[in-house]
Nucleic acid binder design. Structure first.
Lengths: 211, 211
DNA sequence: ATATAGATTAACCGAATGGTCAAAATTATA
DNA sequence: TATAATTTTGACCATTCGGTTAATCTATAT
């Protein structure tokens, strides 16, 4: 077998990065192969040489971005900490991650909604079968202390994620309604304040909840 | 002037409805004029007869859907109630509205993010200049009682909206991670439970917040 | 009945788009 | 250096897509 030269992975990576950017910005149907080629600085035919079709290129990008998004979440949830510590760490790191990848959340939400057929390839990729059950069993005492039943977990988990993800996904809308956030720096500041606000709100409520 | 026959407005409305559905499902770039014509049961040329171009048709639909989404929010916020009552009513009616229009939230978030040039036509359309300031002045005493400063309002408002909007926008993702919600009925149930959960969480926290 | 204006359609157009192919260029191997 | 394998490119193809046009149809007014 002949070895691949370093140009190989290099080019493939350039394509992959360009594709990630374009797809994140414009989505699957809005992206153009030509534009991806241009940004990668290569000929369009090369796209099809490395990735057979637009769909396959998209799928490759999508799966990686999906993993990227969930990797951190899952690893934090598996660490050896109290529930409260986990949530705080999650808010901190997840918000920092999204500040570096601001278009990612909305991209993932949109594409998964428009292409439900990816569902399968995702649940294979993102291994977290039943995160909420796992978490509940792991922190049963602490959570019961907060007055949280197992049946509350879906509401709780979605709420926690929404604290960080929603403002990021809704950035466009927010910056229209609150023009002070058109400046990206101001918005990032806002997101960082949100770490404290969200965990403060959540645990103030939970503290109050136990009877 | 010759009067328009009933076919006129009827047809235009059929087109508009078909376009709304298709655009909501697939977004601006994913939608096809032919598909819209098919769903409306008319010839493609008629689309261009009533609305000059795809962009204009889209814009017409977008503005109306945007109004539809904000109309209720704004009217509730202007009613004569306590802040707490407003929030509860908002959660109730907004969630019921979204159950009837499940694709709408994600569609608006996506399109506004991809076409920031709509910003202008929106801020004209959606009149709520500075809702959070208005609300704060209206409920100054009540909010101060909760320990909320004016500077907390952006965090608070986004949080309240996220309670209802996020799970709806993230339905695709949620139904992958929590397969029990693939059944739309179960998910709607979940959303209705959320009314209580959200206001419960919020006001439990606020109660705890005042020192 | 005939003329008129608006509504609707089939057929068509040009540009854009995803994709292919054979040749050229580059790199690795013998 | 010669040869084989891989990478890269320009030119090209078929299809899709938004949009146009001229003709047909329908209803109303005179």
């Amino acid at each position: 077998m002949i070895k691949t030269r370093d140009a190989d992975s290099h080019t493939k990576e350039k394509i992959f990065m360009a594709a990630s950017e374009i797809f994140e910005e414009k989505g699957h149907s809005g992206a153009r192969m030509q534009e991806i080629a241009d940004r990668a600085g290569i000929n369009k035919a090369l796209l099809h040489y490395y990735f057979r079709s637009k769909d396959q290129l998209f799928k490759a990008v999508f799966v990686v971005l999906m993993k990227k998004m969930f990797a951190k979440i899952i690893s934090i949830m598996k660490e050896d900490m109290t529930f409260k510590e986990k949530i705080k760490k999650f808010l901190d790191e997840h918000i920092e991650f999204m500040i570096k990848n601001p278009k990612l959340p909305l991209f993932l939400l949109s594409e998964i909604s428009q292409n439900p057929e990816f569902s399968e390839s995702i649940s294979e990729t993102v291994r977290l079968r039943d995160l909420k059950t796992m978490l509940y069993e792991q922190h049963a005492k602490e959570l019961k202390g907060y007055g949280i039943k197992k049946s509350d977990m879906s509401q709780l988990m979605v709420t926690i994620v929404s604290f960080s993800v929603f403002p990021m996904a809704a950035y466009g809308m927010i910056s229209v309604l609150m023009p002070e956030f058109r400046e990206r720096k101001k918005f990032n500041e806002y997101m960082r304040e949100r770490k404290e606000f969200a965990s403060g709100l959540l645990f103030a409520a939970l503290k109050n909840r136990k009877k």
